[in-house]
Design a binder for these strands. Structure first.
Length: 288
DNA sequence: AAAGGGCTCAACCGCTCGCTT
DNA sequence: TAAGCGAGCGGTTGAGCCCTT
């Protein structure tokens, strides 16, 4: 058996509110308050409306000090920042913006702000890729110059690799990880370079690099990959590895603009059994 | 001037949460 | 403890407006 309806649907008016209805509702609430019972309220004032509809009308339109439209740059920044950190929790976001309703912010985000943010991120990502490309070339040069012949073939520096900045709580907060984006099903090795200390390490046994070559060698398990993204987007709430909710798919939309290979790769990775590459010292090769 | 496609935003729907009995 | 109920929330819809052709 389904849930009982909150009101008699047959005798309830729907659609836009008339000025008379607005006036009745506003006058009553200003004089008596809601009484903590929205369901009973329309009957008390003779409105053929659902209690939920009255509540919505009051909260989103009739309530004093409501601001409509004309969002400022500062408000945009607050909304974007909160959305990135907590997702579509509109009521929480609205609580940070006096005079704004959750419905208003939700509409504004869906119609304007999302597009604005995404285009901004695309531009920033283009600029970032351009600057990281030169760093990658420098790394390749240094690798070829310093790395001894007998060492493992550490990092296939190819056109598909991607650089990701570290988070502030990373051991090397000002460095970045270098991730081979494809294929993700075979977890590819990755570099993580730090200007802070000049040592190499790797997941599993420590790896002794050459003195003076700054960085560390890691393998791209999920944690390492998303360590960089976490710092980049300023969130520590992101649950990596859980993509079943609608919320996380919207996160994917945002993230994919910044790191399209990583998001698509991560999704592919989730669907496959993770494999860890190991180095065969005898044959000087990596094997999955 | 008219058509139609896109956009905005008020309102609805259905779900979850928390309180009460 | 479980069921019932209302409040609150986020997703979605659709009427009306605006802009382009």
């Amino acid at each position: 058996m389904g849930r009982a309806p909150c009101c008699d649907k047959a005798n309830v008016k729907k659609g836009p509110w008339s000025p008379e209805e607005d006036a009745k509702l506003k006058a009553y609430i200003e004089e008596n308050g809601t009484g903590g019972n929205w369901i009973a309220l329309p009957q008390k004032i003779g409105l053929k409306r659902c209690g939920k509809s009255c509540r919505l009308r009051w909260l989103n339109y009739l309530r004093p000090n409501i601001k409509h439209g004309g969002f400022s740059e500062e408000e945009d920044d607050i909304i974007c920042s909160l959305y990135i950190n907590i997702g579509s929790r509109w009521s929480i976001i609205a609580a940070q913006l006096p005079g704004r309703t959750d419905n208003d912010i939700k509409n504004y985000w869906n119609t304007s702000l999302k597009k604005k943010l995404l285009s901004k991120q695309q531009k920033e990502e283009q600029a970032r890729r351009a600057s990281w490309f030169s760093v990658k070339q420098e790394m390749k040069r240094e690798t070829e110059e310093y790395w001894p012949q007998q060492q493992p073939p550490l990092m296939p520096l190819t056109s598909t690799s991607t650089a990701i900045p570290h988070s502030m709580n990373s051991p090397h907060p000002y460095g970045f990880s270098y991730v081979e984006a494809h294929p993700f099903s075979v977890l590819s090795p990755a570099f993580s370079i730090s200007p802070i200390n000049n040592t190499y390490s790797q997941v599993g046994a420590p790896f002794q690099g050459l003195a003076g070559f700054p960085g560390e060698l890691i393998y791209s398990n999920n944690q390492q990959i998303f360590d960089g993204m976490e710092g980049f987007y300023g969130t520590d709430n992101m649950v990596v590895g859980s993509s079943s909710s609608a919320e996380s798919s919207s996160w994917g939309d945002i993230y994919s603009l910044g790191f399209p290979q990583i998001v698509s790769g991560f999704e592919a990775c989730q669907q496959s059994t993770p494999q860890v590459s190991t180095y065969d010292e005898q044959h000087c090769t990596w094997a999955a």
